[in-house]
Design a protein around this nucleic acid. Structure first.
Lengths: 193, 193
DNA sequence: TAGTTTTCTTGTCCTATGTCAAGTTTTAAT
DNA sequence: ATTAAAACTTGACATAGGACAAGAAAACTA
């Protein structure tokens, strides 16, 4: 294992002993996805998750009217996982697709379970990551209720500028819960102000 | 410990050994809340969570315009917890209030940590519960984007009829992301149909 | 049991955002 | 380079749901 491994960013030595890292890091396998490849498709149960070293990924669902709704964007250092499919071992409703060529580090469920039940710091970090996702999602739900579309866009712009710059308007629009037409007008309004 | 303890519903013997239950159950403390009591208030870090034996509880946040927005309802057998405040040890934005007199079973963070790191089945169950909450929240977010207010109301009616029967219209309305005026009209429309 | 407060309903009018459709610009492919 | 396909913009119009206000009906309270 090289001393400058991508995964050292994910598992920093301040949180893990050398011995723990020697157990954890070799369990991850580097995988590459080409643009438009699917990491997961509706109806399947997710058996792996990934950390992104480079590239962009999007997850989406198809609603009852057949509309594509973006549920999340993922970029370098993010974890790509459908928490409920991975942990509850249920078929997912989500599609997860590479928006560009990607380099990822993959771990499968059984290996995750082994590390989770063996290494205390690993499960602490896993729990923290999941709770962090929960927190983000809860704030998004509140924002859908309390904020106007323009405010939601401005917040995204501030929090994830790399998303706005790399991802098509229509995908950002469904993520914000508006139409591409509206988002185009919001952008115009901001540009003119 | 009596053989017919409320907590046996939460920790069923099919998932836990007798020995494990003898470790877990006595750690919970029965607490009672009177109607309108707060279990948690904004700005504080949650150090306990509860299972509800009886009663109704509501959590809400105050948005930037000072509006009260219901984030969740809790009834018998539900876990009452602010996941992010409890696990990330951060001050919460939520207020959690008893809507009726309640009997609850309480566990504090340090005891949780002890059980989580000691008992495998305890942490499996904890993870499953958290992931279940995540799943529900994600579906609510998608529903806010994809469904009309009436559909969201009808789904709530179907999934949690006890909520509709016990909780005031205005609290249900903010939970669904609409005004009480709109919800009143939706109810009328459904009644007339 | 009257009085007060809260909850719920209903009317009128308004606004943010959606729908549809026609262009324009950008990107991708041969 | 040429064409085809996406992505984006813009206009005209429609609509779900919001804002405000006045009553009616319940639910507490003294």
């Amino acid at each position: 294992m090289s001393t400058h491994h991508f995964l050292n960013n994910i598992f920093p030595s301040k949180n893990f002993s050398t011995e723990e890292l020697e157990t954890i890091l070799p369990k991850f396998k580097q995988v590459k996805f080409a643009k438009n490849d699917y990491l997961l498709t509706e109806g399947n149960t997710e058996n792996d998750y990934w950390f992104i070293e480079s590239g962009f990924v999007r997850s989406y669902v198809i609603d009852t009217e057949g509309n594509d709704i973006t549920t999340n964007f993922y970029a370098a250092y993010d974890i790509v996982i459908d928490w409920s499919s991975f942990f509850l071992r249920n078929p997912t409703r989500e599609n997860i697709q590479a928006l560009s060529d990607c380099v990822c580090w993959q771990l499968d469920f059984d290996t995750f379970q082994f590390l989770f039940h063996t290494i205390q710091s690993f499960r602490e970090q896993g729990r923290t990551t999941l709770v962090g996702s929960y927190f983000t999602l809860k704030n998004q739900r509140i924002s859908m209720i309390a904020d106007q579309a323009k405010e939601r866009y401005l917040r995204l712009l501030q929090e994830k500028p790399h998303i706005i710059q790399n991802i098509s308007l229509k995908h950002i629009a469904t993520y914000l819960g508006i139409t591409d037409t509206s988002l185009s007008r919001i952008r115009k309004e901001i540009a003119e102000a």
